[in-house]
Each structure stands twice: as structure tokens, then as C-alpha cells.
């Protein structure tokens, strides 16, 4: 377990509703799957965007737990105020490619900035951002190396 991972369901407090769902096995990214062409979208969508598909029926789906790091960068400047983070310091943003052909951006956690390598396996994690008005920790979706020992499927 990483220090970023809340131990109880009660701790799940995402910064925005609808990107993740909490399951018994931990949080998962929540997207949309088209019943016609089986394309997957993230975040959730009410439509299928595939021009080769005429279907208008989509369903909610969970993205795979494990993906591959496609690329990353380290942001050295503090972003504008809409990004609220109590403990700001240069941090990594990565792109993780999931088997559903979806590439998702998110902060990387649980790895030293110098050790990040494209092509390695990453899993979804939660990263701390700020404490809300009630003193409760707010999280965002993040990715951490699979080798960090997060529960597997």
C-alpha cells in the first residue's frame, strides 16, 4: 500500500464527481462503452464519438486497473489557482495507456521523479490535494507503479 491510498471507503473524497468509482478492490476510473462499436471513452460520455458507428446506446464501464506509461512530464511551475494543492512542489503528470485504447492523463505518485520510465506498468491510485472545509482530505486520480504493491485484479 502507498501512503496515498486511503484505507477505508469513507476516505474516498474525489475533487470532482464522476471520474472514479470506489469498489471493494479500490477506486477505478469510470468511463463509457459504446454497445455498438465497443469503443471506450473517459471521462463518461452520453454519446459515442466514432464516426464509423451509428449506435446511440452507451453504458457505464470501469477502465482496467493496469495500464502502461505512455509519456510523462515534471511540472516545475505552480499551476494557476484552480489547481488546489496544499503541498505543492514540482510533480509528475503522466499519460497511461489502458487496454481499452484509452490514454488517460493524471498525476504520478509513489515514485521518485528521476525514476519514472516510459513503458512501465502503472495502476490507479489516489493522490492528496487539499483538506476541504470539514477538514476531510480531498483526492484526485493518480497513477502509481504497479510494483508499489497496490491490490491487483
Amino acid at each position: 500500500m502507498t501512503g496515498d491510498m486511503p484505507s477505508t471507503l469513507e476516505a474516498f473524497n474525489p475533487v470532482v464527481e464522476g471520474l472514479m468509482v470506489q469498489t471493494e478492490a479500490g477506486p477505478r476510473l469510470m468511463g463509457t462503452r459504446c454497445l455498438g462499436c465497443h469503443m471506450t471513452y473517459f471521462p463518461s460520455s452520453t454519446t459515442c464519438r466514432n464516426p464509423a458507428c451509428g449506435s446511440d446506446t452507451v453504458e457505464s464501464t470501469q477502465l482496467s486497473l493496469v495500464g502502461t506509461l505512455y509519456s510523462y512530464t515534471v511540472q516545475h511551475y505552480q499551476p494557476p489557482p484552480l489547481f488546489r494543492n496544499d503541498d505543492w512542489q514540482p510533480y509528475a503528470i503522466g499519460v497511461v495507456e489502458f487496454p481499452e485504447k484509452v490514454r488517460v492523463m493524471g498525476m504520478l505518485s509513489g515514485i521518485a521523479l528521476d525514476d519514472i520510465a516510459i513503458g512501465e506498468r502503472y495502476v490507479l491510485a489516489l493522490s492528496d490535494l487539499v483538506k476541504d472545509a470539514d477538514g476531510k482530505q480531498v483526492h484526485t486520480h493518480a497513477f502509481t507503479p504497479e510494483s508499489q504493491g497496490t491490490p491487483s485484479e
Binding site: 475533487v15 470532482v16 471520474l19 471521462p43 511540472q75 511551475y77 505552480q78 499551476p79 494557476p80 484552480l82 489547481f83 488546489r84 494543492n85 503528470i93 492523463m105 493524471g106 498525476m107 484526485t140 486520480h141
Partner: peptide, 11 residues
């Protein structure tokens, strides 16, 4: 645009 700022601050 809301998501990229609040979830990861991607400039």
C-alpha cells in the same frame, strides 16, 4: 478545461 486544472493542474 475544469478537469485538467482541478485534477492535475496540467498547464
Amino acid at each position: 478545461d475544469f478537469l485538467r486544472w482541478v485534477t492535475m493542474g496540467a498547464t
